[in-house]
Simulated assay, not measured.
Amino acid sequence: MIGLVALVLLPRSSGEERAQAPAHPRTPSPTPSAAPPRATAESARKVKANEAGLVPVIMYHRILPKRRASIDRTPDQLRRELERLAKSGYVPITAAELVARKIDIPAGSHPVVLTFDDGHPSHFAVDQNGMPKNDTAVGIIYEIAAKYPNFRPTATFWVNRDPFGLRDRARQRQAVKWLLDHGFEVANHTYAHPDLRRLSNSRVSEQIVRQERLLKKIGVPDSTTMALPYGSRPRKLSRAHDGKWDGSEYHFDGVFLAGAQPTVSPYAKSFPRFAIPRIQSNGKQGDCRRWCTTYWLDWLDKHPRERYTSDGDPARVSVPRKLRAMISPGRAKSVIAY
């Protein structure tokens, strides 16, 4: 990857509106009144836009006061990492928005996808006032968004059969409704979190269909993305994104792995739609010396021209002229090469 230059739900908003403080978490953001500014070669050059650049998709698991496994993070570790992202000009988008190429963020900023696996209770829970609890993932995201107004409060939650540790269907519906109403994505992580590589093709589809049926029962629309448990791909690779079981079919626009580097831009010809890499949130110990967030965020800071930088116009794709050939032919008419 070194040296390689370009691998939802909240209403659209203008650059001016995006700079305002986030809405109260119990109130969805208002519908925008103006379109984003139209990018030009001059404006793209000014912010050094590179929409063929790398996008970090960060993978989180449990958020615990005391870590029990290497992939756990503490609330303070999550808080510090999100604050680092905010200070560095990153703006969260959902996984669904990434694969749909709906990247609407301010000019000069960088997209980041925050993803949380398994639907653990530490990801989302509400207090007696119906607000996200302190030190949950959602609570911390809103905390950072309040401090850094350009840090859009959104994330993707890939859940299994007991979303957020809830077994009561009514409470599951309440939880996902809150998240969907506030711009978060909730999607399929299989029903029982098996290693899909070890299952027959039929069993792979069963795990995905059973979870999709559960999600529909609790008010989640058809998933457009899914994350592979353990990052393990089924023996028939296409079963991860297309299949049917017991009269039900599924199709995902994007499938995400478990590591271990940033993804190329979704506008790039080489975008691996059904094998999108993620970066584990962690320090630089052991295997993480090269493959986790501390390493990669440091690397992107040192190589800013390799990072996705927005032109502020979701209808255009701006790149340095030398990278024009990297963009998918389907976007040819919308490219600004400067």
Results as ranks from 00 to 15, higher is better:
L4Y: 13
A6L: 06
P11G: 00
R12T: 13
S14R: 06
A19G: 08
A23H: 08
P30D: 12
P30G: 01
S33M: 13
S33A: 14
A34L: 15
P37A: 12
A39N: 14
T40N: 13
S43Q: 10
A44T: 06
K46T: 11
K46I: 11
E51W: 14
A52N: 15
A52D: 14
I58W: 15
Y60T: 07
Y60W: 11
H61P: 15
R68K: 04
I71F: 13
R73Q: 15
R80W: 13
E81L: 09
L85P: 03
A86I: 09
A86S: 08
Y90M: 00
A96L: 03
V99M: 10
R101L: 10
D104M: 07
P111G: 10
V112H: 10
V113S: 06
F116M: 11
D117P: 09
S122Y: 11
S122M: 11
G130M: 08
M131S: 05
N134R: 15
A137K: 09
I140E: 02
A145N: 07
K147T: 14
Y148E: 02
N150L: 10
T156P: 10
W158A: 08
W158V: 15
V159R: 05
G165R: 08
L166S: 00
D168C: 05
R169G: 01
V176N: 04
V176Y: 12
W178S: 08
D181E: 13
F184E: 04
N188D: 11
P194M: 05
L196S: 01
N201I: 02
N201G: 06
S205M: 05
I208W: 05
I208C: 02
Q211D: 12
Q211Y: 03
E212N: 08
L215T: 04
L215D: 05
P229F: 04
L237Y: 02
L237A: 03
S238D: 00
A240L: 00
G243D: 00
G247C: 04
S248V: 09
Y250W: 07
D253H: 10
G254M: 11
V255A: 05
Q261L: 05
P266F: 13
P266E: 15
Y267P: 14
Y267I: 15
K269D: 04
F271H: 09
P272N: 09
R273H: 01
F274Y: 14
P277V: 06
Q280M: 01
S281W: 00
S281G: 02
C288N: 10
W291D: 07
T293D: 11
D298V: 07
D301A: 10
K302E: 10
E306W: 05
E306L: 15
Y308F: 15
S310P: 08
G312R: 10
S318F: 11
A325K: 13
M326I: 12
G330S: 07
A332E: 14
A332S: 13
A332H: 12
